[in-house]
Write a protein that binds this DNA or RNA. Structure first.
Length: 582
DNA sequence: GCCGTTTTCGGCCCGACTGTTTTCAGTCG
């Protein structure tokens, strides 16, 4: 084995390409395409290194990966390429994949432009379209030719960028989706409107917004949707579905159906596609056929369900939480009755990571405490920054002590919420903690975080985090990888070593709920739980409204399969304090 | 290529919409 084994992203990309090229080539291999894509999806979302697993013969344990694909992964790890893929590339130009990815074009039309015009990439396609030659190809006309030109001019089909479709953070998309749903419900009071799709599943990045409405006046709901102020243009419009482009740069889709089939519609539109595929295969084995219209029996009778839970019940399954619907074994678990009880927003009884106006927060400690009490919390950890984070107004030790005096005074009021003396202390570039041990010992809760030195190599970054974990005063590691969606990659920590140390010392790892962080992410959180590591969900709020961001962290935790027992701040303070490390 | 309440072969999800056609294939979700 010459090089380090390929990353999950690299393995997934190769298998994806293999599937894409096979599909374009056509022929009697339809289901092999699906198999490669499913494997690529599984690998992208796997928590552990799949190449290493394949070398140990364990990749076949992942759903969708069998002996053949495992062998191809081993081949890739050992030789740097997959022979079958290399041979396929000689038969089918790779540029056709980028042509097929254009909206309105697919594998068949991509193959047609190559066969009929010799076009093998987006640049040649643009030339052919400009020259008006595209409309002569079977299946193409002037409309499609114009659409192709428009997309290519807008940068569609460009090399690099994996897919290239715009994606939005869950935080923003959720707010947009809920605004749309609320306004549709106001516009048509008889309708039952809900957010579906990847937003409902709590995916950290979403490519579009899906809404459903149960109604007996679908035309009015679609009209209200098209006329909404957030809508830039209407992309498609039919009797049961319409799609729009939002000013925010994201696509939104609305599906409607009768109120009596609202559960079927919601189930269908929530997906994921892979989950629905698997669900329908499961149904087929029972002689049933599932769609957004209802469940069709073998005798031809269609049964509709107003509630989504009843759709799953009709298939002999316990209700599956949307966050788990990714075809990672959830249907098998529902069948066996072993789905986990996932943590819920309402399980949280405190927040251990919020800032006040003592550092870079906007509100007073008293105001933050009042906001936490309104949310039903029993405790709130005021965790302002430490001295070295000067640009965020980090606290010097004497200011810390003065803050403690104020907290004691506020707690003496005994008004229903306990304010904890907490801190978000910097892990310095040499691994030391930014306060001395005497001061650290006076805190109720210590979160240690990386805020600088991200350009260090993986070994040094890992050593810094390990040093913090080993400190007897550190209770939790805040936003452990330091990633910022779209701005900064996760620090390349040796996750195995971090998880081992956290589990051994009882140090909590945070799921930070800031929309741009969501750190740990779901895959790492899943690995942490598997490794026996306990988690906390922190808002990292810098104002009262920021407390509500924990719903995003809860979504990450749920997608990772966390139950209330896995989450520190789902426990009362006395119980949590007794669990503190050291 | 994967997988099993039709188990080691023979299956493999379903419907809406668009643009191209003149009854439908391809694309999309």
């Amino acid at each position: 084995m010459p090089d380090p084994p390929p990353t999950n992203r690299e393995v997934a990309a190769r298998l994806q390409l293999l599937g894409d090229l096979l599909e374009i080539e056509g022929g009697p291999v339809r289901h092999r395409v699906v198999a490669y894509r499913r494997a690529a999806d599984q690998i992208r979302s796997a928590g552990g290194p799949v190449a290493r697993m394949a070398l140990e013969g364990r990749a076949v344990e992942l759903p969708g990966i069998g002996p053949t694909i495992q062998a191809k992964i081993v081949e890739l790890a050992e030789t740097g390429e997959i022979g079958a893929l290399a041979r396929l590339r000689e038969r089918v130009p790779e540029g056709l994949v980028r042509i097929a990815a254009l909206r309105g074009i697919g594998p068949r039309r991509a193959l047609a432009v190559w066969r009929e015009l010799g076009v093998s990439g987006p640049e040649e396609l643009a030339e052919a379209a400009k020259a008006g030659r595209l409309r002569g190809v079977a299946g193409f006309g002037p409309r499609t030719e114009a659409a192709v030109l428009e997309q290519l001019a807008a940068g569609g089909g460009a090399a690099g960028a994996d897919g290239g479709e715009p994606r939005m953070s869950l935080g923003r998309a959720l707010a947009l989706a809920e605004d749309l749903a609320r306004d549709l419900a106001l516009a048509e009071p008889g309708a039952r409107v809900a957010v579906a799709g990847s937003v409902r599943r709590g995916a950290e990045l979403v490519g579009d917004i899906d809404l459903v409405a149960g109604t007996d006046a679908p035309e009015r709901v679609h009209a209200a949707f098209a006329a909404h102020q957030a809508v830039e243009s209407v992309v498609a419009q039919g009797a049961a579905r319409s799609a729009v482009m939002l000013h925010a740069g994201l696509r939104a889709e609305l599906q409607t159906g009768p109120l009596g089939a609202f559960g079927n519609l919601l189930q269908h539109a929530t997906g994921s596609a892979a989950h629905n595929l698997r669900l329908r295969q499961h149904a087929a084995r029972r002689g049933l056929s599932v769609s957004e219209r209802g469940v069709l029996g073998s005798d031809g009778t269609l049964t509709t369900h107003a509630e989504e839970d009843d759709v799953y019940a009709a298939l002999g399954l316990a209700p599956i939480p949307p966050e788990l619907r990714e075809d990672r074994g959830e249907i098998e678990a529902a069948l066996a009755g072993v789905l986990p009880r996932l943590v819920e927003h309402g399980d949280l009884v405190g927040d251990l990571h919020v800032h006040s106006d003592w550092s870079d927060g906007r509100e007073t400690i008293a105001a933050m405490a009042a906001a936490a009490r309104e949310r039903g919390y029993a405790y709130l950890g005021i965790s302002d920054h430490s001295q070295s984070l000067r640009m965020a107004g980090g606290l010097e030790p004497d200011r810390v002590r003065r803050q403690w005096e104020l907290i004691d005074q506020l707690n003496a009021r005994d008004d229903g919420i306990r304010i904890l003396k907490a801190t978000e202390v910097d892990i310095l570039t040499d691994g030391r903690i930014d306060f001395d041990d005497d001061l650290l010992a006076g805190f109720d809760w210590v979160t240690a975080s990386l805020h600088s030195g991200f350009s260090q190599d993986a070994r040094r970054l890992t050593e810094r985090v390990l040093a913090a974990i080993e400190s007897p005063h550190v209770d939790a590691i805040g936003h452990p990888t330091g990633r910022m969606l779209g701005r900064r990659e996760a620090a390349p920590l040796d996750l195995d070593r971090v998880l081992e140390a956290a589990a051994r010392t009882g140090t909590f790892l945070e799921i930070n709920s800031q929309p741009r962080r969501l750190d740990l992410n779901e895959a790492m959180a899943r690995e942490a739980l598997r490794g026996g590591v306990r988690l906390v969900i922190g808002s990292d709020a810098h104002g009262a409204a920021g407390l509500d961001l924990v719903r995003l962290g809860v979504a990450v935790a749920r997608r990772a399969g966390a139950g209330p027992a896995d989450i520190g701040n789902a426990r009362g303070w006395d119980e949590l304090a007794a669990m503190r490390a050291g």
